[in-house]
């Protein structure tokens, strides 16, 4: 296994046998905009409008289990939100991480609940705590906080001592 591969070309060359990379290169060559292999973990950056198609491709390639959807706020860098998906393959015993970068103005990305119904709660959590919307989600409501809560607390610019 290579030590660390930090850009798309290096990853595509070094991990050419990886099932996820093979599937995405064959079926969705335009979906992967960048890639990284670090500390034994593969990360693929997916174009924001391709995430649902990419997930469907991965699922057909054997990555059958969605473990987690979460988000990282890189305020004040643009694009600000990094929606992160962890997808596991029971058969290959491998995990792949997807990043989708989202701009700070009206942050939104396609929901993947039609691919994995389990994304329902995870995406509601991301909406609740980061304020990233998911198009096509069956019921995008707050999940942790009360309905009337203002703001999204895990954003880096959220005032931790409350609004003054």
């Amino acid at each position: 296994m290579p030590e660390a591969l930090l850009n798309k070309d290096a990853v595509f060359e070094g991990l050419a046998q990886n099932v996820a990379i093979q599937a995405l290169r064959a079926e969705r060559p335009e979906a992967v905009t960048n890639a990284k292999y670090d500390r034994g973990e593969l990360t693929l950056v997916i174009a924001a409008d391709q995430v649902r198609a990419a997930c469907r491709t991965l699922r057909q390639a054997g990555y059958n289990f969605l473990e987690d959807v979460t988000c990282v706020d890189w305020f004040p860098v643009e694009p600000r939100f990094q929606v992160t998906y962890h997808i596991l393959s029971h058969k290959l015993k491998e995990r792949v991480r997807l990043h989708v970068m989202v701009e700070s103005i009206d942050p939104s990305v396609d929901s993947i609940t039609s691919v994995w119904p389990s994304a329902n709660y995870y995406e509601r959590e991301v909406w609740d705590l980061f304020g990233v919307r998911f198009h096509g989600h069956p019921g995008l409501r707050r999940i942790m906080l009360p309905e009337e809560w203002e703001g999204h607390p895990l954003r880096k610019d959220y005032p931790v001592e409350g609004y003054r």
Binding site: R39, E67, D68, V72
Partner: peptide, 19 residues
Amino acid sequence: GEVYQAVESPRGEMGYYAV
């Protein structure tokens, strides 16, 4: 960097994603 570490907790897969 970022890592995702999963372990088998009594209830199932527990994972920590640290950035």
